[in-house]
Design a protein around this nucleic acid. Structure first.
Lengths: 242, 242
DNA sequence: CGGCGTGTTGAATTTGCTCAACTCAGGTGG
DNA sequence: CCACCTGAGTTGAGCAAATTCAACACGCCG
């Protein structure tokens, strides 16, 4: 029941870069299997030197870091197509943990093959670097949000970003998307308390900008919400898929 | 007066990875010149698609992002050896601006040569990815600080991190290092107001942990300060130099 | 039915922000 | 030589945003 890269359902999506037959074949050989996990399953642990890398094929998850006092910072949300575990492969240890929020299916790659994969195709090596640079870019944005925006802007920013990612993946239907995360997750992503996040969501709801209930997020006016977030909407970029 | 990579003063420092003769030669060819800038000079602009990349050879600077309302988030401080402009090369635009704080000397590379450089040496390609992954790692840490730590911990964290970087570069003498930044820079890095940052620094001074005056930072007890920051001290890693 | 997880809301508290004033050093120009 | 300005740092007072504490609603599941 393992998905062959040749018939990978993600690759069909136009937000993912075209691959040459050769690249596809190399990626196919790199893939060592598949992993299906239940909600709540830890996939990688902060500080661990994991022997495997993953690409999210289905489902959603979170990257997060925990402090000694127990507080948690959500670094990013994981969507299908995301590459997981690069830090462990490059640096020998993960800077954050990764956990499944929904049921997930992951393509599995062996770290022992990683260097060969990287070396054997300049294009794929470039893609990996591209992904790292993109993540760095995004984290700079997030940092700016957490550091500078007030709660209303920050929550708006997060919802717009999430919505855009989902939209690019075709997860939005009738202006609605599935959002399996908890309010606590958003709170931890933005450095806000749960209560304040809840009240901020209520304000956005009162303003008729956003409804998020029963695991479904509906944004009435994306442009206006982006305005609240002081965020300019940009077209989604084509990105590589490993 | 351009420094030849062969006699690069940074490379002598043991925190930088050894290079093979071949790698060194390729890097030497990649380098197209040198740039000397005065304090306050903008080096790269957010959103720009710069034709050049740099490595900081001497001096210090800042990476930062500005929001429409004028608020500024400092993303990171730039020290000698830092690679600047990777995002523009990989993604076509910088996610943040870069500015010199002190007088700086930068090694200049042409973006048009970047892909060749990347392709012609797997080791160097790997190094570039390593740097991107390291930056991502660090930004996750920073995000956690800004999102979760209170002002006292956050300021302690920042000073410890800065001090460690400087120490690795041999900039610490008698427990003191030059710190050319303003309190406003630290404030913007941590998402705190200038006034509150100032008062927090005063608290650390009263506790006899840190003295920062006249552009010199002195940390009396690094371990204790790291304790306030809820940060575990780790040995500095050897890193590549481009 | 009771317990748990999640979401919601009000009240009290606190952390950090804004405003404002003042010091001090360095530079400039009459 | 002194008056004046500017930038950086410092400090107090009052205020606002966000936190903590607390209680309750609701659906789900054992």
């Amino acid at each position: 029941m393992v998905t062959d890269c040749k018939s990978c359902p993600l690759r069909k999506n136009s937000i993912f870069q075209e691959m040459t037959a050769d690249e596809l074949e190399k990626t196919r050989r790199f893939k060592s299997g598949e992993l299906a996990v239940d909600p709540g399953t830890p996939i990688l642990m902060e500080g661990s030197n994991a022997p495997q890398l993953y690409t999210a094929l289905r489902g959603m998850g979170l990257r997060y870091k925990t402090l000694a006092d127990g507080s948690r910072q959500v670094i990013n949300f994981i969507f299908p197509g995301d590459f997981i575990g690069l830090q462990a492969s490059m640096l020998g240890e993960m800077g954050h943990s990764v956990e499944a929020t929904t049921h997930m299916t992951l393509c599995v790659f062996d770290r022992s093959d990683f260097f060969d994969f990287f070396r054997n195709s300049t294009a794929r090596a470039f893609d990996i670097t591209w992904l790292a640079a993109t993540e760095e870019h995004f984290l700079g944005d997030t940092l700016t949000t957490v550091g500078q925006r007030d709660a209303l802007s920050a929550v708006s920013w997060a919802l717009v970003r999430i919505f855009q990612r989902a939209d690019a993946l075709g997860l939005v239907q009738n202006g609605m998307m599935p959002l399996p995360f908890k309010q606590q997750d958003i709170a931890d992503a933005l450095g806000l308390s749960l209560v304040h996040t809840n009240k901020t969501l209520a304000r956005l709801r009162e303003r008729q900008l956003v409804v998020w209930a029963d695991g479904q997020l509906k944004i009435h006016d994306l442009a206006e919400l982006a305005g609240v977030a002081d965020l300019e909407l940009e077209p989604v970029k084509v990105r590589p898929l490993i």
